[in-house]
Nucleic acid binder design. Structure first.
Lengths: 240, 240
DNA sequence: CGCTTAATTGAGAGCCTTCAATCATCGTGG
DNA sequence: CCACGATGATTGAAGGCTCTCAATTAAGCG
């Protein structure tokens, strides 16, 4: 990738605008390009909000309360846009799970520019509620779900984002360690490992090596995750 | 309030635009006005996303996995904008904690209109990341925090949104029951009650009746919540 | 003032965590 | 290509925190 390839990918893939357009150059002026190798943390100024575009790679967004206690708030992959707030209740940071290329924007200026361009604004208004919904689903899982349910839900979510569906079963190469899965689900390494064992013995998944997971029965896994199913969906409420 | 007062309040307070403007009428055409009394659930069509504006009152956004298991995803108050997705992993609903006036928009059309109006787009791009951040903070609390930490964090968050700060201490009238607090924090009624007791015996709060809470020591409460404090904030990282 | 519902308090059970040890994986060097 | 070492993952046993079940007390409304 040349030095400006990430930005072109950004404008095109994220917003469907051609590089070189007025708004494109405007946004490019705001961007800082960052290259992270595995395990590196992006040097973000935590005094104001940032918008980070993951051009390639895989990253984790980490919230840190104390030195010892940290939680992974979200994982992000190629083409994802991440909203990274200034430190609030917790300190936030973006760390690469593998080599990643990022574009970093100051949030305020980015939104100022984006708001004036209908196409970009529309795209952001499309993406942000999705991120919000992902976060809510996670919050529900963290609040209500058992360890097994959390891991089942995690595997399903990951398979939808980075899985390779192959007929009935689905292959998955997890770019994160058990420790990181645990930090994302609010569980310990050991519990995560035990739950992998549970799902394995139920015949729902197979694991090969540290990162390869094969999902045999998506539907049953979804049931184990405590997710809503067709039969139990609230029947259409006509008003509105 | 007259029948169109909520909408005028909506355009003005949420976006700073005057009623009667082109975009104002356009949005008004999309809106359905809903009046909910305490305990009532908004009759939302769960087949597509909605945007709900809480003109007055207090509401809870509930995610329901099964009949028995439901979690409160967020509370909303006067002037809040709520993004209510179509049923995904869980079914979503909006229920009034007390009498509330809502404006309901179909999300797609709402965003289509909003994207073309820089002022509105900018305002939404301001609000959505805040909602996202609130959700993330909750997710961290649910994933990592003990029962005491969760309640402490909850009380702080509520005091910031609906508390009356009075010199050193802060008074709070909680519009939700212990059950609803529990459903929001992923705890049982009993545990919530016990944690109120813990915070009370620590001298951090006082409770009067079912809903009145007085916070004596915000700072200590914040510490109990496991939140980041000035002394432990990561020192400014200059790059970017 | 009495009744209904919500909140508090107590005792025991279950799930996850913690601590500890063993095993597997994978990158490295021979 | 294999052996080796380091790190990550798995497995086991004991303890703690929250949940469950049950009873009592308090609050708020008619």
């Amino acid at each position: 990738m040349t030095h400006r390839a990430p930005f072109d990918f950004f404008t095109r893939s994220a917003f469907g605008i051609e590089p070189g357009s007025h708004i494109g150059t405007q946004l490019e002026g705001l961007a800082s390009r960052i290259d992270l190798s595995k395990g590196q943390t992006a040097p973000l100024d935590n005094r104001s909000d940032r918008i980070v575009f993951v051009a390639s790679g895989a990253t984790k967004l980490v919230a840190q309360a104390s030195e010892q206690r940290q939680q992974i708030v979200a994982f992000h992959f190629d083409g994802d846009i991440v909203s990274v707030p200034a430190d609030g209740l917790f300190a936030n940071s973006v760390t690469a799970l593998r080599h990643s290329e990022l574009l970093v924007f100051p949030a305020r200026e980015f939104f100022d520019s984006a708001a004036g361009e209908a196409r970009i604004a529309r795209s952001l208004l499309e993406r942000l509620p999705i991120a919000l919904q992902r976060c809510r689903d996670r919050a529900v899982a963290l609040g209500q779900g058992s360890a097994t349910e959390r891991l089942a839900g995690f595997l399903l979510a990951m398979s939808e984002r980075i899985g390779r569906a192959d007929a009935d079963h689905c292959e998955l190469d997890l770019p994160m360690s058990r420790k990181e899965i645990g930090e994302s689900l609010g569980l310990t390494i050991e519990t995560v490992s035990r739950q992998f064992g549970v799902l394995r013995e139920l015949g729902l998944i197979k694991t090969q090596g540290r990162s390869r997971v094969t999902i045999f029965d998506r539907d049953m896994l979804s049931r184990k995750a405590g997710h809503l199913h067709q039969t139990q969906k609230t029947s259409g409420n006509p008003t509105n």
